[in-house]
């Protein structure tokens, strides 16, 4: 369940699931790269919240808008970039000559 012992900080993740809205389509389970979700009795449930990296794929692909997560780059350089410019964390990889992910 826990890959290579690689788990990041616990109890910080902003992921939330509104079970009332969930239609059990299972899209969140498909797109999650860390197997955070599970489907039980035709409803999604958050099985391992601490493995969530807040990428936002589940929220984006939930047709019922039942998932909310403050998604963004879990990247120190991106956060410093945002601090320096007074913007949200951004890795600014799109400009010519910039060197990032």
């Amino acid at each position: 369940m826990i890959m290579n012992g690689l788990v990041y900080l616990t109890d910080v993740v902003t992921l939330e699931l509104d079970k009332e809205k969930c239609n059990g389509c299972g899209m969140c389970m498909i797109v999650c790269p860390h197997a955070v979700f599970e489907i039980e009795n035709r409803k999604a449930l958050i099985r391992n919240k601490n493995l969530c990296m807040e990428c936002g794929a589940c929220e984006k692909n939930c047709p019922e808008e039942a998932i909310h997560v403050r998604s963004g780059v879990g990247c120190a350089a991106g956060i410093i970039n945002g601090l320096l410019r007074g913007t949200e964390p951004t890795c600014d990889c799109s400009g010519p000559g910039s060197n990032c992910c």
Partner: peptide
């Protein structure tokens, strides 16, 4: 700390907390 951006499992909330 900068390797968080390269890694495949760090969350924004977590990185902000440690930073």
């Amino acid at each position: 700390m900068n390797f968080t951006g390269t890694s495949t499992f760090t969350s924004l909330s977590g990185v902000q907390k440690e930073m």
